[in-house]
Amino acid sequence: MTINIILGVSLVLAAAWTVMTARLLRSVIGLALTSMILTIIMFKLNSPLAAVFELSVCAGLISAIFISCISLTQRLTDEQAATKQKERFSKFWLLPVILVLAGVALYQVHIPLDFHLQAAPSESDVRNIIWNLRHLDLIGQIAILLAGAFGVVALFKD
């Protein structure tokens, strides 16, 4: 249980840092960190396959996309970064307060869990569900990947 609490708290901390830090690059690193913590949580929640996806795609690919975007757009000097940090702090000081208050408040609440909770062993395999039972979703994914490919072509070509 202790490890779960640590994981939960660090997840929120990483997300808060992502939002509050002034430099976009650090923000992206914070996002990757959040992803990694989420991956560990997913492992703990018996979802290894989704966890691997989260790690490789969200922590890896999305960070790469963001970093290339940032390196193509913005360059801040140290001074600018410092003033920006102040500006950000004035805008975002409320966030940790809200987070702590909400966290404490929610921790006090005991929701009546009237739906049946049972962590029974899963009834079938993930691969079976993806490849055999949900063909429609596969078609959707192919379509969206195609759309993404056309989009990248349309938006980047000169």
Binding site: R134, L136, A147, G151, L155
Partner: peptide, 23 residues
């Protein structure tokens, strides 16, 4: 379709195509 999650996927397919068409 007849599934909530597939609904999400296909709405998103339409949406992504629309984003690109707009831009």
């Amino acid at each position: 379709l007849t599934d909530l999650f597939s609904l999400y996927i296909f709405i998103e397919v339409t949406a992504v195509a629309s984003f690109i068409l707009i831009a």
